[in-house]
């Protein structure tokens, strides 16, 4: 690498500096804004090997997003310019979607807290699923009522409850309602609609 002289560096600086070129008539939005740095910058999106259509997970406006990934890792989330709702824009929350999916505070494993314990312990997913299924059956069997004392048919359990749904997919809501209500006979099923 050759060492540049002060004069070379001054010339380089003047060449890169936008103001003289603007005075010379170049547009500040275009030609005068270019520099060797901006010429060499490449959009991150060029590296993506996958792009998918997304919908913002926060409020109910329904802004469309594009999600870009490379080698199975998310690299960028931006507003979808085609959307008649957001036309490429996102608000501060929507723009944080990438930060949400890559938050350092995300859980990787199932945490379990045994009765009276003062700490979490990591548990295998399969173990947790089996244990929860057994608890569901136990509680349902203990609390299921077919008829009230006066003979009124109720076919339900008041011992099981579910909260949540407004942040989930329609398909997920459907399976929650179908299995919890239509299968198990739960009636305490609620989401954020009343919050």
């Amino acid at each position: 690498m050759t060492r540049r002289t002060i004069a070379d560096r001054a010339r380089g600086f003047l060449r890169e500096w936008s103001i003289p070129r603007q005075i010379a008539g170049q547009s500040h939005r275009d030609e005068a804004a270019r520099s060797s740095l901006s010429r060499d910058l490449r959009p991150r999106l060029e590296e993506a090997d996958t792009v998918g259509t997304g919908i913002c997970p926060y409020c109910a406006v329904g802004c469309a997003q594009r999600l870009y990934a490379r080698d199975g890792r998310l690299i960028h989330v931006e507003g979808d310019p085609r959307s008649p709702i957001n036309q490429g824009t996102l608000c501060p929350k929507g723009a944080a979607t990438f930060g949400l999916l890559t938050s350092p505070q995300r859980l990787q494993h199932v945490l379990y807290r045994a009765p009276h314990a003062d700490r979490w312990e990591v548990k295998p997913l399969d173990w947790a699923m089996d244990r929860i299924a057994a608890l569901v059956k136990r509680t349902r069997d203990e609390t299921f009522v077919r008829e009230l004392p006066d003979g009124t048919r109720v076919n339900h359990t008041l011992g099981l409850a579910s909260l949540g749904g407004a942040t989930l997919d329609n398909e997920e809501n459907y399976l929650i309602k179908k299995f919890f209500s239509g299968g198990l006979g739960m009636v305490w099923i609620e989401n954020q609609a009343r919050v």
Binding site: I55, C56, P57, Y58, C59, A60, V61, G62, S162, G164, G165, A166, T167, L168, D169, N170, N173, Y174, I176, K177, V187, W188, I189, E190, N191, Q192, A193
Partner: peptide, 17 residues
């Protein structure tokens, strides 16, 4: 103007009692 991404959906396909 509703507040959660699918709060309308979770009312249409209700996780509601």
């Amino acid at each position: 103007l509703r507040g959660h991404t699918s709060i309308q959906g979770s009312t249409d396909i209700p996780t509601l009692y």
